[in-house]
């Protein structure tokens, strides 16, 4: 299992993601600098969270035009797997690898706390195949612009194609703020049309140890690695 973690100026979850992948795969992922346009063959590329280029213009907009992105697009066209977390999800959207947009949180607050996700998708993909539909995972979020927004016809299409990976779940049934950002249909993560690219706002790499308060992130990432190794 060869994995790589992309680093832009302003990435800040790259080390945590490297620790998580090393813990799962036993191998240290390679670091991919944003200026690289010739990257080796990898099984998994992760675009970690952060505030790339200071969130200037729009979150992820400048990172999405970096040289490394065309290599990532080639990796995807060869059937490669990509995970984008938080700012990584914003970058995948800005690069038009995933559809829709991520706008400012509804209440204008930077939200940093645990959320409960509910697995939605049944489509064949390496991220969720080992998990059950309706299964709940506790994974934290930390973002300012995670409000997934898309035209109604796109939301309908994503639903029909089973491309909504996770929704924020009202785990206690009376929790008012279970959705941390006001996203359409409580969407927390979506898949590409071939299921090999996942963008999600919550941070699985921040829930890989009991000291973090939970290990559901480890479960998700381990599942993904196992499915890729096949």
């Amino acid at each position: 299992m060869r994995s790589g973690v992309v680093i832009f100026p302003g990435s800040n979850c790259d080390r945590d993601m490297i620790v998580a992948l090393r813990q799962i795969t036993g191998k240290t992922p390679i670091k991919l600098w944003h200026k690289e346009n010739d990257i080796p063959n990898l099984d998994l590329i992760v675009i970690p969270g952060g505030f790339t280029f200071g969130d200037y213009l729009r979150c992820g907009a400048l990172a999405a035009r970096s040289p490394v992105i065309s290599s990532i697009k080639n990796h995807i066209s060869r059937g490669g797997t990509v995970l984008g977390v938080c700012n990584g999800f914003q970058i995948l959207i800005e690069a038009k690898i995933l559809p829709g947009s991520l706008i400012r949180n509804k209440k204008l607050l930077f939200t940093c706390r645990e959320t409960t996700l509910e697995v939605q998708s049944c489509m064949k993909n390496p991220f969720l195949s080992g998990l059950k539909i309706g299964e709940r995972l506790k994974i934290p979020v930390a973002h300012n612009d995670g409000n997934y927004f898309a035209p109604l016809d796109l939301i309908k299409k994503l639903k029909e194609e089973g491309r909504i990976a996770f929704k924020y779940s009202n785990s206690t049934n009376n929790e008012k703020n279970y959705n941390p950002n006001g996203s359409t249909e409580d969407i927390a993560g979506i898949l590409s049309n071939n299921g090999r690219v996942l963008g999600m706002m919550p941070h699985p790499e921040r829930a890989i140890n009991y000291l973090h308060g939970g290990t559901d992130g480890l479960k998700l990432l381990t599942n993904c690695v196992e499915k890729i190794i096949g």
């Binding site: 907009a61 035009r65 800005e94 947009s101 898309a150 035209p151």
Partner: peptide, 9 residues
């Protein structure tokens, strides 16, 4: 179209 505007929103 290429950078300055996110034409989705």
């Amino acid at each position: 179209e290429k950078l300055l505007v996110n034409t989705v929103i």
